[in-house]
């Protein structure tokens, strides 16, 4: 098995991707009008203070030199300081990333479970009412942006019918667990604090659902069309002809080949949730990295912008490698074809 060399090659290639990404985002962040030093210090700061900061940030030097200083820092693990929070960017990211990771992971679980469920049901009852209901839900689900859902959820569950918490990561007065991974659910489980675990899980439900609904239905449609496509294949007719029961055919022989096209899209969708979570995080008052990154952009917080984008890029790269591995697992033609 050439899995190791494949992984190694992919990881090496992704370094180039990340370097390319860093150059692009470095330039974009700097060509946008506005003086970061001035914005950081405020309009009433004296000019010499602004100039001093510009010099400290190497903003007075040419772009190439600026990039050199920055990438040198990144290579040694120093992502620079945020102009807004006045802390190290790495520190900020460590604080905000886990919240978003947790949100996206729960969303991903929703996406995987429900897209397969809805897709398979729609294919099984193709052109029957079940299919039509899922189709209508899908069009609505894909068309309505997640922030609209977020507002609706907050309105309904935060105000009209408060059965499930709609704001923040934990209820007021609940002591967060000792931070080990930064993911509240996992930390609380690790420390054996089940009430906190339950509370964190309830807080995750609504924002994760708001994020997941679009991708759920997009993937459900892909799975449905792949399954209805494959239904016409000889191997399905053969399986029916051999007398294999319908539920085995649907849930096994038809589902597995039909998941392959959906997995790639699913991976990208789930990775994009990281960045797209911005408005949902704002609405649910969720202290996540998406919100942090957006604020950094609005305030031209150069180091924070670059760092957040690099983190997103890294996540995309890793998710894509993961997706390729899952596809290879699902499809022996790719796994054993020699051209992994």
């Amino acid at each position: 098995m050439k899995l190791h060399s494949y992984l190694l090659r992919r990881l090496l290639l992704s370094i180039f991707v990340l370097v390319g990404l860093s150059i692009v985002i470095f330039i974009i962040a700097r060509v946008v009008p506005g003086d970061p030093a001035r914005m950081a210090l405020g309009p009433r700061a004296p000019q010499f203070a602004v100039d001093a900061l510009r010099e400290e940030m190497h903003l007075d030097k040419p772009l190439v030199a600026q990039y050199y200083y920055w990438i040198k820092g990144v290579a040694t693990g120093d992502l620079g300081r945020s102009l807004v929070t006045k802390r190290g960017v790495l520190e900020d990211i460590m604080e905000f990333l886990p919240a978003t990771m947790e949100l996206v992971m729960v969303s991903a679980i929703f996406v995987i479970v429900f897209s397969i469920l809805f897709g398979a049901l729609a294919a099984r009852y193709k052109d029957k009412w079940v299919d039509s209901v899922i189709r209508i839900m899908a069009y609505t689900g894909v068309a309505v942006p997640s922030f609209v859902l977020a507002v609706l959820f907050v309105l309904i569950f935060g105000y009209l019918w408060p059965v499930i918490p709609a704001l923040g990561r934990l209820s007021a007065g609940v002591q967060p667990p000792v931070s080990i991974t930064g993911l509240l659910t996992i930390d609380s489980l690790l420390t054996g604090d089940f009430p906190v675990f339950w509370d964190a899980l309830k807080h995750l439900f609504l924002p994760a659902l708001a994020l997941a609904i679009g991708p759920i239905f997009q993937e459900a449609r892909i799975i449905r069309s792949a399954m209805t496509d494959n239904m016409g294949k000889d191997y399905v007719a053969a399986a029916v002809g051999y007398g294999i029961p319908n539920h085995i055919i649907m849930g096994k022989y038809l589902l597995k080949p039909s998941l392959i096209p959906a997995v790639s899209v699913m991976g990208l969708d789930i990775a994009s949730l990281m960045g797209n979570a911005f408005l949902v995080e704002v609405i649910f008052n969720w202290p996540g990295i998406s919100r942090y990154g957006m604020e950094a952009m609005l305030r031209k917080d150069l180091n924070a912008i670059s760092a957040v984008i690099i983190v997103f890029g890294l996540i995309f790269v890793l998710v894509n490698i993961l997706v390729d591995l899952i596809v290879a697992y699902l499809d022996p033609r790719i796994r054993l074809g020699g051209k992994l």
Partner: peptide
């Protein structure tokens, strides 16, 4: 080639039959 499911081993398919 079309009558065998490409993503399951021969064994899996035969055992189910």
């Amino acid at each position: 080639a079309a009558a065998l499911n490409p993503v399951f081993t021969v064994g899996t398919q035969m055992f189910d039959v």
